[in-house]
């Protein structure tokens, strides 16, 4: 983690604009009677890299899954890239094609080759001609440094490679926003770095990113804001240095001491 933080990272292109990418206002969500998300207010600007952390069960996944409506919220407002998420399925599909999502367990399509995984959505959702979709896919596979695996099936790849394919698959849709839900938690330690490197590169290109992760080195290296959640609430948010060195709330302090191991 230290070596990530210490890495010379080119922050020059990682500028935050004042255009709003995601706006969440007074959002509440329940699972049955269980109140998972309470009064969430969050504004994300284009170009921001936000890391969300917090204890297990605090609602981090639920929050970012609400942003592309894998989960439905019951109260409040979520506007993504100018489109409000309502029960209108058309808007939902539109938002989903603008927002990429990377899952903890990759969720690649096992019956399709790596290349087909990457071209499927561009061809069927964006109506890109097959040839062009394949070129784009190869471009992003080169970017995540596994072009040579294009013809293999996901089951033939290592976890780290699969996660990089999953990132490439999302990028092929040319999303404006990327969501990551603990992308490295299911990986063996030696594979974590290759995935984080890919994510860092993405951040350096100015992608708007929301990452649920416990990789605090990554947070220090690329995040411009760290959000701490507990029991369905945003407890504290700050820029990383301040967040780690000078946590305001006791709960944050406790969490950091547990996760940083001192």
């Amino acid at each position: 983690m230290e070596d990530l933080a210490a890495r010379a990272i080119d922050r020059s292109r990682m500028t935050v604009t004042d255009e709003i990418a995601i706006e969440i206002v007074k959002m509440n969500k329940w699972y049955g009677t269980f109140h998972v998300l309470r009064d969430i207010d969050l504004t994300v600007y284009k170009g921001e890299r936000i890391v969300i952390c917090g204890p297990s069960g605090s609602g981090k996944s639920t929050l970012i899954r609400c942003i592309n409506r894998l989960e439905e919220h019951q109260q409040g407002k979520i506007v993504v890239d100018g489109i409000e998420l309502t029960s209108d399925l058309k808007n939902v599909d539109k938002v989903r094609s603008e927002v990429g999502m990377v899952f903890q367990h990759f969720n690649l399509f096992p019956h399709l080759t790596v290349l087909e995984n990457c071209t499927l959505a561009p061809i069927w959702v964006r109506k890109v001609p097959k040839k062009e979709a394949e070129e784009t896919a190869m471009h992003f596979l080169r970017k995540v440094r596994i072009p040579e695996q294009a013809m293999k099936y996901p089951g033939q790849l290592s976890g780290g490679q699969q996660q990089r394919v999953a990132i490439a698959r999302s990028l092929c849709m040319k999303p404006r926003i990327m969501l990551f839900d603990e992308p490295t938690s299911a990986l063996d330690p030696e594979m974590i770095k290759e995935v984080l490197d890919t994510m860092i590169e993405l951040a350096q290109e100015g992608m708007t990113m929301l990452c649920v992760t416990h990789e605090m080195g990554f947070a220090q290296a690329v995040a411009n804001r760290v959000i701490f959640m507990d029991q369905g609430q945003i407890v504290e948010q700050n820029e990383p240095r301040e967040f780690f060195n000078n946590p305001k709330s006791d709960r944050t302090r406790l969490f950091l001491s547990q996760i940083l191991g001192h």
């Binding site: 603008e98 927002v99 999502m101 899952f103 069927w124 959702v125």
Partner: peptide, 8 residues
């Protein structure tokens, strides 16, 4: 979820 998240 992966299929949904790609906008299919």
């Amino acid at each position: 979820e992966a299929a949904d998240s790609l906008g299919l």
